[in-house]
Structure formats: structure tokens, C-alpha cells
Computed example of a mutant assay.
Amino acid sequence: MKIGTDIVEIHRIERSLTQFGDKFKQRFLTPQEIELVQKTASIAGFWAAKEAIAKALGCGIGSELSFHDILITKNTRGAPEFKLSEEAQKIHRIKASSLSISHDGGFAIAVAVISQ
């Protein structure tokens, strides 16, 4: 089991949205994810989640794993889940995972637990 965590100031994401608009969201979210997130706090949560997943995998966001290699969804109860692109899954071979996202007090935090 590997664990990754990330925290981001929601205001930082808000500033990027104001400055770059939809281009900022498109940089790290897939079209399906953009449909899921309406509030800035949720967008910040998805940012933190993708960073936490990359940390749990031990590679960070870069040449081995891009933001778009990670797809965050919600299950029928509204809990976050994720899967990797086929190419990234071939490299990282995730067997099981868990993802938690929360936001409060101006921050969004995410924790990812991964078994390979």
C-alpha cells in the first residue's frame, strides 16, 4: 500500500480561474471532470486529488503520468473514485485504490491510497 496527500489553497485555484478561465480547467481536467465540478472548492479538490494520486504512485505529475491520465469520477453515493488511462495503468498496475477529498477553511485536501 502506498499513500499520497496534497493540500491546496482554494483562493489559489480561484486566482488561476480568473486569470486563465476555461484554459486553466482544461489543463488538468478531462471534459467529464469539468462537467462534475461546478464550485471552485471542488475544482481545487480535484487538483489536490490528482497530485495526491501522483504522489502515491511515486512519480508526481510529469512525463510518466499526466493530469489527463487520471480520471476522477463519483460513485452512486457521491464518493470520489479514480482510474488511470490504459497507458498509465500498464505502467503503474493499480490493483485497488481509495480516494478522499475534502474542503474547509479555504483549503482543499485529498488523500489517495493505492495497492499495486
Rank of each mutant, 00 (worst) to 15 (best):
M1K: 10
M1L: 11
M1I: 06
G4C: 13
G4W: 11
G4Q: 07
G4N: 03
T5W: 04
T5D: 02
T5L: 14
D6G: 10
D6R: 08
D6F: 12
V8Q: 05
E9R: 13
H11V: 03
R12M: 07
R12D: 13
I13K: 08
R15W: 00
S16E: 11
T18F: 07
F20E: 03
F20N: 12
F20Q: 06
F20T: 00
G21I: 00
D22W: 02
D22R: 09
D22I: 12
K25L: 15
K25N: 02
Q26K: 15
T30H: 01
P31H: 05
Q32S: 14
I34D: 06
L36E: 04
V37A: 12
K39S: 12
T40S: 04
T40R: 02
T40A: 06
S42L: 02
A44D: 13
G45L: 12
F46C: 12
W47D: 05
A48T: 00
A49D: 07
K50S: 01
E51S: 02
E51F: 08
A52W: 07
A52E: 06
I53C: 10
A54C: 07
K55N: 10
K55A: 07
K55F: 09
K55C: 07
A56R: 08
A56H: 04
A56N: 09
L57K: 04
C59G: 10
G60F: 03
G60W: 07
G60I: 08
I61C: 02
I61Y: 01
I61E: 01
E64P: 00
E64M: 12
E64Q: 15
L65W: 06
S66H: 01
S66Y: 01
F67D: 03
F67A: 08
F67N: 07
D69T: 06
I70K: 05
L71W: 01
L71C: 10
I72E: 05
I72C: 15
I72L: 10
K74P: 02
K74S: 12
T76Y: 06
G78R: 10
A79Y: 03
P80W: 05
E81L: 14
F82T: 04
F82K: 02
F82A: 03
L84Y: 08
S85W: 06
E86K: 14
A88T: 08
A88H: 05
Q89V: 03
K90E: 15
K90V: 07
K90T: 07
I91F: 06
H92C: 06
R93F: 04
R93K: 15
I94G: 02
I94W: 00
I94E: 00
K95D: 12
S97T: 09
S97P: 10
S97V: 06
L99S: 10
L99N: 04
S100V: 01
S100A: 09
S102T: 15
H103S: 08
G105R: 13
G105M: 10
G106K: 11
G106P: 04
G106R: 12
A108E: 03
A110G: 09
V111I: 15
V111A: 12
A112N: 01
A112V: 04
I114L: 15
I114P: 04
S115I: 13
S115L: 10
